[in-house]
Design a protein around this nucleic acid. Sequence first.
DNA 1: ATAAATCATGTAATCGATTACACGAAAATA
DNA 2: TATTTTCGTGTAATCGATTACATGATTTAT
Lengths: 342, 342
Amino acid sequence: MSEKVTIYDIAEKLNITAATVSRALNNNPKIKESTRDLVLKTAASMNYKQNKLALALKSGRSNNIGVIVPRVDSNFFASVIRGIEEELYPHGYQVIICQTHESTKRENENLHTLVDAQVDGIMMSVTDVSNENDSAFRNVLEKNVPLIFFDRSKHIEGVSSVTINDFKGGYMTTKHLIDEGCKCIAHLSGDQSLEIFKNRFLGYKQALLDNGIPFREEYVIYAKSSVDAGKKAVDILLGLETPPDAIFSSSDFAALGAIQELRSRNISIPKEFCVAGFSNEPFTKFMELSITSVDQSPLEMGRMSARVFLEQVDKTDTIKIEKKVVLAPELHIRKSSTRTNF
Amino acid sequence: MSEKVTIYDIAEKLNITAATVSRALNNNPKIKESTRDLVLKTAASMNYKQNKLALALKSGRSNNIGVIVPRVDSNFFASVIRGIEEELYPHGYQVIICQTHESTKRENENLHTLVDAQVDGIMMSVTDVSNENDSAFRNVLEKNVPLIFFDRSKHIEGVSSVTINDFKGGYMTTKHLIDEGCKCIAHLSGDQSLEIFKNRFLGYKQALLDNGIPFREEYVIYAKSSVDAGKKAVDILLGLETPPDAIFSSSDFAALGAIQELRSRNISIPKEFCVAGFSNEPFTKFMELSITSVDQSPLEMGRMSARVFLEQVDKTDTIKIEKKVVLAPELHIRKSSTRTNF
DNA sequence: ATAAATCATGTAATCGATTACACGAAAATA
DNA sequence: TATTTTCGTGTAATCGATTACATGATTTAT
């Protein structure tokens, strides 16, 4: 039953104006203490709840922020979202989730929907960087909605980003494999139009060069983030004239597939062949043959994105602060690449 | 720069009323076709975007629905959320995420926040069933906000729920272990004040009785959903006078811990000891020794919850339809409990 | 040709809260 | 005592869109 109670109801009951009620509730200094107390008491007794929609319409701020990710059921993105939610919760923001399913069309739709819904900010991991159609992004910026990229970023003026140092991640992992005595290290790469994959690759390449190991084009295989892709990649690599003795994969799933395929061919890991992945998916440490992987601290990434957003909102000035936060990757060395114990 | 364009701006430009503009945009039949076309064209050229907040205030519907889960970074909940989002997306609803972190206080806060934010519905997995303080839930129902429980439910009149048949899940898993020749089957249970764990336990018990295997109190161990809890449980079980030869765990993580502990004691799985888990976490099938587990079809659960919600909204009548959907669990038999190949 | 029906649009209230401005009363100052 | 501040509230506009009702212009029916 409970009809919605408005400030008008309170005003009527107390024979005063809604304006006074509003002021009392907002701790406006120019209100008599006795009236304030009376209003607060009455509001409580009538179970008054502020209508956030009315407030949002009046103020232009919805207290909602939008998060766009390719999909929510991936450990990485879910953890980022968790970080965002935790950081924003104390500030009264609600988090709205959108998924692109890696579709540019959906990405644009989501951007428009969120802007239409008057969110106070948008945090996202870009789906397709090659998407030249920036109009959806420009629309966001024109409406002065703070936009923050995390993990998968895109170069757009006025947009802050929170990423990890993928180059370093690629470099340190490759260096580790070299240190374990691997001489021919292959690389499974994702779509290199995405900077994250480009940089992991560049880090890999640099580590080879810095350590006097020749870089070979044929050791770099494009592989989607799936178990099957990893298996196929191994099939190709083992067919080469000089097959590699290690794999640095940009994806944990592909790394897993690689391991499965290597084992089915009775190649011993890590003795004959070392494997390392990227993302530190939960399963990498659960395996009997745990998989070496690079942690991207998604929780921290989410928290940091939220913090960058909060800074952005505080600055009511039109000064555009474009902040680029780069987190350090963390290499978790596990059995799949540890020869010292064997 | 782009100032926000309202229907008043369009009206002014065309020398008509905002009312007419509104009607034209809403395909109101009593509008001259020529005016409609003109308005639509002008709106497009001015890049007009409807202000959803104003609409929400007027209509009382925000087109947002709230989802409350213990945490978002678990494969199960993330998948449910994915299902909800996918099903609701075509209907123009946005999904707002809240986390309780298993705290009743946070759960109540979230419920209030969502109601205050005028969401059109709430879907949630209950954190603490023993929480006698129903006031937050009653508040939701009094405000006539459709409430739907998924997975972890609670008996409240007027609340629909989407769950899986946990009893059956427990029963079929236990039956499977029996069929594999296990004679002494232990059970790792979660907090049995939660129906899901209670029912998995009951299914386990019934399967034993139906197959002439005595039920033993000491074989039921309380274990949190963690690897460590699983290890400790095995420690206790193996210390019994008659140690078991199989474990049915309500949690995949505990099952994993159990397996690790068994292996460290050189007990061979599945030859000497069988293990089965619950939830079908991704890692269960990735392990070299893949783990038998019960799939809860979280994606379907999310979709179904969304569908139940949509039905609920359609019925504008005050008739309260309380719908209880129970999905079938699916047993994925894997190496950790398959003796036939050995 | 006149009355009735139909059509397209305008007027103004509404959703609930905030706030600039106005105003009378009380308090402070001269 | 007369005048200026200060204080506490009220009035009314505003945020943007929707919609019941009113109104004037056509069209149709008698």
